[in-house]
């Protein structure tokens, strides 16, 4: 890359308009160019930073020792939560089935219809039959009232005996 192109890229870079490839080209330009350009220090800084390494040389060893002492945690899958999901789904399924079943039964079963059906075609005959039934009822009532009278007489005589 020549200096002219580098200047154009630099302008783009400091305006935040460069892509990664162009930024890489700029870094390579300054690596080969040396420190004569005013922005060389800036790019030298970026290069130096990239070369920084972890200062602890025994780091790997320390980490591996720690790892050997630390068992890996098995991934905990929330079983209880899964059970809740299954239970909720089942409950929903059962509720929906019951509702549908009831609806189907209701639709297929004939509902009782209240219909008034005449037992007699002739009203005169019906009147006679009703009269007969009521007379039978009144005769039975009279019989029971006779028994009641007898019973009250018995109670009165009992009272007289108690008083004497």
């Amino acid at each position: 890359m020549n200096s002219k192109k580098a200047e154009v890229l630099l302008e783009k870079y400091f305006n935040g308009e460069t892509d990664l490839q162009e930024e890489l080209e700029l870094k390579e330009f300054f690596d080969s160019k040396g420190s004569s350009h005013p922005d060389a220090d800036y790019f030298n800084y970026l290069r130096d930073k990239k070369e920084v390494t972890l200062p602890d040389q025994d780091f790997d060893e320390k980490i591996l020792t720690l790892i050997n002492e630390t068992p890996a945690k098995a991934k905990v899958r929330s079983i209880s939560r899964s059970y809740w999901y299954v239970a909720a789904s089942l409950a929903l399924l059962i509720s929906v089935s019951i509702i549908f079943k009831n609806r189907i039964i209701k639709e297929s079963t004939p509902q009782p219809v209240m219909v008034q059906v005449d037992t007699f075609d002739d009203p005169e005959k019906a009147f006679e039959e009703t009269k007969k039934a009521l007379l039978f009822l009144s005769s039975k009532l009279n019989e029971s009232s006779e028994y009641a009278t007898k019973f009250s007489k018995f109670e009165q005589s009992q009272e007289v005996v108690k008083q004497n």
Partner: peptide, 20 residues
């Protein structure tokens, strides 16, 4: 430096713990 090294160690251990 020291705090950054601690952070790297904590990261490594966390990765190992969460290996799944």
């Amino acid at each position: 430096h020291d705090l950054s090294m601690d952070v790297v160690q904590e990261t490594m251990m966390k990765v190992w713990e969460k290996q799944q």
